[in-house]
Structures are given as structure tokens and as C-alpha cells.
Design a protein around this nucleic acid. Structure first.
Lengths: 182, 182
DNA sequence: CAGGATTCTGACCGATCGGTCAGTAGCGTG
DNA sequence: CACGCTACTGACCGATCGGTCAGAATCCTG
């Protein structure tokens, strides 16, 4: 169904731009060119729509977690992580920036748990404050940067350009101090 | 008046935690132990309360801008910038994470303009994508990290510890590539 | 104590919210 | 054509939103 995908696409844009609480079901319906009732026909509730919107991105995080769990964090991991951020930039922006205001929403709690688990992998090798903050800055900063890039620059940069820059910066950030000082 | 300051303090916490849209005037009144009418007696509107909440932090940004305009960005600038982030961590978190969902609020538009101006100072010396992203990651990442630190770690680190780590990380991030490669 | 200003409150308002429901339009198949 | 299923809609609901207002409580000062 084209409508279902359209609704999810519209919801993704609006949930990221105006926020989940700042986006009404009627607004999504208006942007998609259907009635509010039609939105709630395809998706049982506004929450179910959020679920469908960021669900795939959460599955992507689980894949990354599985990969981290198996092997160590090497250079190719940063590359894969950046590709994930680029692919799901709006979804990541949603559950990074709005997770604290949507504590009672199940899918957000799932996102919270995943992010915490991911953060733990970075924190367990080194319990220093700085290394923990490096991961937080990398994640929160990249999410902020990718979602608001068009606000600061009129013409968006090419994805390849942004990808290269992000890999450089995040490699620098996520490489622990003790390995850099070898 | 203790009540007025209490209300602003409560509003600061809630606007940062649950978001401006996710915080009702009644909720603020409940947390402050007064009636909703009393809140709207001291502050003409919910928007005026937001104004009083993040206004001082915006004044702080203007001071930083003035300093940047006068002199170059040196090591002590990062230190001052970190102190600003630590002092106004909740306020910064509010207008960094919610500025896109509150586009019609005047005080948020003021914050937007200030952040854009600050970003321009970093972008004008180098128009490269990477240098622009470095500033975005530093600002968005630090705001995210400082506001959500307690979510990931049960016991908060001391401010001095966080301050030192943040200065290290942001110095590394904000030092342009061309100077590092000298 | 008297009285005016300040502080505070409950009752109420229109608007908007997410969600329900009965009903209809369209479409493919027998 | 007739049937059944999917897609869709307008009307409506209770709840909550920000905000208003008349009046009560409190406080300060003469």
C-alpha cells in the first residue's frame, strides 16, 4: 500500500522536525492528503505510528550490538556505525532527542535500553569519565548534526562528503585515549 | 519572591526533562505546590515562563559571542565555553534539542539566531564540511551528554571531573585540522 | 484595627488532542 | 449484477490544554 508507506514517511519527517508531542494525527493526515480517520485506520494509534516509524532503526541498532558483542571495535566498526547514522538519521534524531520526554512509550523504552547497552560496550573497557563522555558526544553530536545540517547550511552537502568527515571525526572521538597514547 | 524563583527552577527541570510541549502549566504548579492560576499570575503565559527560564543562558551566549568577535579562538575560549555549558546545562539542552519543534516561539528564535551566529564564527575560518561538523558535534554532543549523564551513570561525576574531560574532548574537536597538521 | 495592595485560588472557557464508530465508496471476484 | 472486502470518511466523544476572571486570603502599612 502506497498510503501506509506515505504515512510512515510523513510521520518520520514530522516526528523528527516538530517532535512527537508537537505533531498531531490531524497534521500527519493533512500532509499525507488523507483524513485523520484514515491515518488511524492504517495505524491503530499515534503510538503505533511512532513504532512503525523508528522500529527499523532500532532493528539496525540490534544488528550493530550483535556485531559489537561478537568482535572488538575496530576501524570498520566506526564506518558501519556512521553508515547506520546516515541511513537512519531522522529516526536516530527522534529517539536521541525525545527519549527523555517519552518515557512511557514502549518503543522509546526499547530504544533507551538499546542505547544504554551500546554505551556500556564503550564504557566497560574503560570506566573513565572521559571515555564515557566521548561516546555520548559522538552519538548525541552526530544525531544533532545530521538532523539539523540543513538549518545551518542552505545547500546540503553530499552524503559521501558528510560520510567521510563523520568517519574521521568519530574515529578520533571513539578511539580511547590509552590506545592513542601508545 | 521565593515562589517566582521556585517556579522558574521547576520549569527549568521539567522543560529540559519532559520538553516544553510535554510539560503542562498544571504540572509545573503541582511540582511547585501552588495552583495553576498562581503560576499564570506570576508569569503571564507558559511562553513567558520559558522566556524567563532560558533567557539568562541566552545572555551568556551573547557574552561569548562578544568575546569571540573581539579576539581569536584560543585555548582559554574552550575553557570558557565549557564553563558556560556546565553552568547552563539544562537551558542549553532545552534550546538545542527543542529549537526545531518550537519555531514559532520568539525566545527560541532568538536562541536559533545566536547559535547560528556562533556556528558562523567557526565556519568562516574554514568552509570545509568537516570543520562545520566538528562544531555541531561538539555543541550538540556536549548538550546531549550533560543533560543525560545521570541516565547512563547512577552516580553523577563531580563537576570538576566532567569539566576536565569536556575541555580535553572539545579542545580536540574544535581545533581545526589545518592547525593540527602544522 | 482599617484598608489597600499583593498573592493566590476554584470555576470556567474555547480549542485541540487522540481515538471511536457507523456508514460509504470503490474494487475485484463469483 | 451481487457480494464481500479493503480503504476511507465525517461526526462525535471525553480528556486535557493554555488562559481568563471574579473573588478570597494574606500581608504590609498607616
Amino acid at each position: 500500500m502506497a498510503t501506509i508507506d506515505d504515512l510512515r514517511s510523513v510521520a518520520l519527517d514530522e516526528f523528527s522536525r516538530a517532535g512527537y508531542l508537537g505533531t498531531s494525527v490531524a497534521r500527519i493526515a493533512e500532509l499525507a492528503g488523507v483524513s485523520k480517520s484514515s491515518v488511524l485506520y492504517h495505524y491503530a494509534s499515534k503510538e503505533a505510528l511512532l513504532d512503525a516509524t523508528i522500529g527499523p532503526a532500532l532493528d539496525g541498532i540490534e544488528q550493530i550490538l550483535e556485531r559489537v558483542r561478537r568482535g572488538a571495535i575496530d576501524d570498520s566498526f566506526v564506518e558501519e556505525f556512521v553508515d547506520f547514522l546516515l541511513r537512519y538519521r531522522l529516526e536516530v534524531n527522534i529517539f536521541i532527542n525525545q527519549r527523555r520526554s517519552l518515557v512511557d512509550v514502549p518503543v522509546i523504552e526499547r530504544a533507551n535500553a538499546l542505547v544504554v547497552r551500546l554505551a556500556q560496550y564503550f564504557g566497560e573497557s574503560s570506566t573513565s569519565v572521559e571515555d564515557r563522555m566521548r561516546f555520548g558526544i559522538a552519538l548525541g553530536g552526530a544525531a544533532y548534526c545530521l538532523a539539523t545540517a540543513e538549518d545551518f547550511s542552505p545547500d546540503p552537502y553530499s552524503d559521501e562528503h558528510v560520510r567521510g568527515a563523520l568517519i574521521d571525526i568519530l574515529s578520533e572521538l571513539l578511539t580511547p585515549v590509552h590506545t592513542r597514547h601508545d
